[in-house]
Computed example of a mutant assay.
Amino acid sequence: MKAAELRQKDIAGLENEVKELQKAHFGLRMQKATQQLNNTGTLRVTRRDIARAKTILAQKQAEERAKSAAK
């Protein structure tokens, strides 16, 4: 998923996206453990997608805190 697509989501949407990506990554790890995963590169891609989503989520949460502190 591209960063631009993630930036369009709100905080709740990003939290949901992180949760879904973590579930997908867990499933891929289980497939790898049982020798069912053919393309191990997908593990790296999902791990990076999770990091990207968490980074944008943290940025948005920091913006919200800054807005509420300024009031």
Rank of each mutant, 00 (worst) to 15 (best):
K2A: 10
A3P: 08
A4V: 10
E5A: 11
E5L: 02
L6V: 13
R7D: 07
K9P: 00
K9M: 14
K9G: 10
D10A: 04
I11H: 04
I11V: 01
G13R: 14
L14F: 06
E15D: 11
E15K: 11
V18Y: 02
V18P: 01
V18C: 10
K19G: 14
E20M: 14
E20D: 15
Q22N: 12
H25N: 08
G27Q: 15
L28G: 05
L28P: 05
R29L: 15
R29I: 13
M30E: 12
K32A: 12
T34D: 03
T34R: 01
Q35W: 04
Q35I: 07
N38E: 15
N39H: 11
T40L: 15
T40K: 05
T40D: 12
G41V: 05
L43C: 01
L43R: 05
R44Q: 09
R44M: 14
V45R: 05
V45S: 01
T46P: 01
R47Q: 09
R47I: 03
R47N: 08
R47S: 06
R48S: 06
D49Q: 12
D49C: 07
R52D: 04
A53P: 01
A53I: 13
K54R: 07
T55K: 10
T55G: 00
I56E: 00
I56F: 04
L57M: 11
L57H: 02
A58F: 09
A58Q: 04
K60W: 00
K60R: 01
Q61C: 04
E63R: 07
E63N: 09
E63C: 07
E64S: 12
R65P: 05
R65Q: 09
A66K: 07
A66H: 02
A66G: 07
K67Q: 13
K67Y: 06
K67M: 11
S68T: 13
K71A: 08
K71N: 03
